[in-house]
Simulated scan of single mutants.
Amino acid sequence: MTKLVNQPLCEECLKNKNVTQGQIVHHIIELKEDWEQRVNQKNLETICRECHNKHHKKKW
């Protein structure tokens, strides 16, 4: 929850100069790959649902 408070906007959208409310704290390195990264602040990013869905569709 701290990540959303500190960064309430979608970091992926901001890269494209779009301002969108973030709703999800996303793990850049997935937990199934490295459980130890679950609380590493550098492994977390705030993203919106649309960006989260796009990210995970790429992997399927």
Score class of each variant (00 low, 15 high):
residue 2 T to R: 06
residue 22 G to D: 07
residue 18 N to I: 08
residue 30 E to W: 13
residue 26 H to W: 10
residue 32 K to Q: 12
residue 10 C to N: 08
residue 10 C to A: 11
residue 50 E to L: 13
residue 24 I to Y: 03
residue 32 K to V: 02
residue 18 N to M: 06
residue 4 L to A: 04
residue 7 Q to L: 04
residue 24 I to Q: 05
residue 44 L to K: 02
residue 43 N to V: 02
residue 19 V to L: 14
residue 14 L to T: 06
residue 41 Q to T: 00
residue 48 C to W: 09
residue 56 H to R: 10
residue 47 I to A: 03
residue 27 H to V: 04
residue 53 N to A: 11
residue 10 C to G: 03
residue 14 L to G: 01
residue 17 K to P: 00
residue 33 E to V: 14
residue 29 I to C: 06
residue 44 L to Q: 01
residue 8 P to Y: 11
residue 24 I to W: 04
residue 14 L to C: 00
residue 52 H to C: 05
residue 6 N to R: 09
residue 48 C to P: 12
residue 56 H to D: 13
residue 13 C to W: 05
residue 29 I to A: 05
residue 35 W to Q: 11
residue 39 V to T: 10
residue 57 K to D: 15
residue 9 L to T: 03
residue 9 L to I: 09
residue 31 L to D: 10
residue 56 H to C: 03
residue 12 E to C: 05
residue 44 L to R: 03
residue 55 H to Y: 08
residue 41 Q to Y: 03
residue 33 E to K: 15
residue 3 K to Q: 08
residue 18 N to W: 08
residue 59 K to G: 03
residue 10 C to I: 07
residue 4 L to H: 04
residue 59 K to H: 13
residue 4 L to S: 02
residue 30 E to K: 14
residue 49 R to N: 10
residue 60 W to T: 06
residue 55 H to M: 10
residue 2 T to D: 01
residue 22 G to Q: 02
residue 47 I to V: 15
residue 50 E to D: 09
residue 15 K to L: 04
residue 47 I to F: 06
residue 33 E to A: 14
residue 10 C to D: 07
residue 35 W to M: 11
residue 9 L to C: 00
residue 53 N to K: 14
residue 50 E to C: 00
residue 26 H to P: 02
residue 50 E to P: 00
residue 14 L to R: 06
residue 45 E to L: 04
residue 43 N to D: 11
residue 36 E to L: 09
residue 19 V to F: 10
residue 23 Q to M: 09
residue 24 I to A: 00
residue 32 K to Y: 15
residue 21 Q to I: 15
residue 39 V to W: 07
residue 38 R to L: 02
residue 34 D to A: 13
residue 41 Q to L: 05
residue 13 C to R: 09
residue 1 M to E: 01
residue 30 E to S: 10
residue 23 Q to V: 04
residue 32 K to N: 10
residue 42 K to C: 05
residue 36 E to T: 15
residue 17 K to F: 07
residue 36 E to Y: 11
residue 57 K to M: 14
residue 7 Q to S: 06
residue 29 I to G: 00
residue 18 N to S: 05
residue 35 W to P: 09
residue 18 N to L: 11
residue 41 Q to R: 02
residue 40 N to C: 02
residue 60 W to L: 08
residue 1 M to G: 02
residue 29 I to N: 05
residue 14 L to H: 01
residue 17 K to E: 08
residue 26 H to S: 07
residue 20 T to N: 13
residue 58 K to Q: 13
residue 2 T to G: 03
residue 23 Q to R: 13
residue 5 V to H: 04
residue 1 M to Y: 00
residue 26 H to R: 12
residue 54 K to V: 09
residue 35 W to A: 09
residue 3 K to A: 04
residue 11 E to A: 03
residue 31 L to P: 11
residue 34 D to V: 12
residue 25 V to M: 06
residue 46 T to Q: 08
residue 42 K to V: 01
residue 16 N to G: 01
residue 39 V to G: 01
residue 14 L to I: 06
residue 35 W to F: 13
residue 38 R to Y: 04
residue 11 E to W: 04
residue 23 Q to P: 00
residue 16 N to A: 04
residue 8 P to F: 07
residue 37 Q to R: 15
